[in-house]
Design a protein around this nucleic acid. Structure first.
Lengths: 132, 132
DNA sequence: CCCATTCGCTTAGGAGAACAAGCATGCTTG
DNA sequence: CAAGCATGCTTGTTCTCCTAAGCGAATGGG
């Protein structure tokens, strides 16, 4: 758990490497993951992803995998190159809005995903489409 | 503003119709939108989308458009068929977590997008992968 | 030993997104 | 009218995801 899940600073690890190691860590086979995602990700396709044959799996697929493995969605989005490596920033104009989500009665799971998505949003904003 | 932005209940409007009407409402040309998205969406491609030649523009593209037009991301994701038409539900186990996002100092824009994304998450959960 | 199953993996192919280039029309000016 | 430009749209092509089908190797039972 040290090296791989450590930090986003590790520039060397690929999406395939990461996902493969996670799957082995969870003790799952390709076909078990396929079942776990409710057929959203086929075993064959997962194999391609793990061996870096697929350059950018769709957010859909990554989302399904992140839920099966219970890993950070934003992180693998980053590994997949969908977003640029979120650097911590601090000079935007924010506002102190807090109570909004009181109405939403968040599940803990939803809470986690929202936080991940916020990370995703912010990295998008700050990199401003230089990806192409 | 009545018919189109009215409610998600309107089943007849297509993604193309909606986006086209919004663009005209904003008084923008195809190429202006192309510029506005920082070339993320070409004018030719936008034309195809507006004429329903493209069935499912990627979340990337939809996100870019939602920002240029300042419209609801979750709504056009829904129109595009990426998510199922979020029906209000109420028997999940939630918890009263509220304060989490106090640390995040949300921008109003971020707040809006998070809410949209929450909608997206919940519709995904409740439809449980019958999309395929 | 043979059969069945399961594993990871490869390959071929369909499908559809996305773009670049170009066309057709209409509107302004000279 | 002709030249020029902007706008919306069509066409041809490229690229890549993703699936279906299947292969060789490993394992286990009869």
């Amino acid at each position: 758990m040290a090296t791989l899940t450590g930090g986003p600073g590790a520039q060397g690890v690929t999406l395939g490497q990461y996902l493969a190691s996670i799957r082995k860590d969870r003790g799952m086979t390709l076909r078990q993951v396929e079942e776990g995602t409710d057929k959203e990700v086929s075993n064959a396709y997962l194999s391609q992803i793990e061996n870096n044959k697929i350059q950018q799996p769709s957010p859909n697929v990554l989302h399904a995998l992140s839920e099966v493995y219970a890993i950070d969605y934003g992180y693998i989005m980053e590994l997949a190159g969908h977003i640029t490596p979120a650097k911590a920033r601090g000079d935007d104009q924010r506002h102190g809005r807090v109570a909004t989500f009181a109405d939403h009665n968040l599940t803990s799971e939803e809470e986690v995903e929202l936080i991940n998505y916020l990370e995703y949003l912010r990295s998008r904003k700050h990199s401003s489409g230089k990806t192409k």
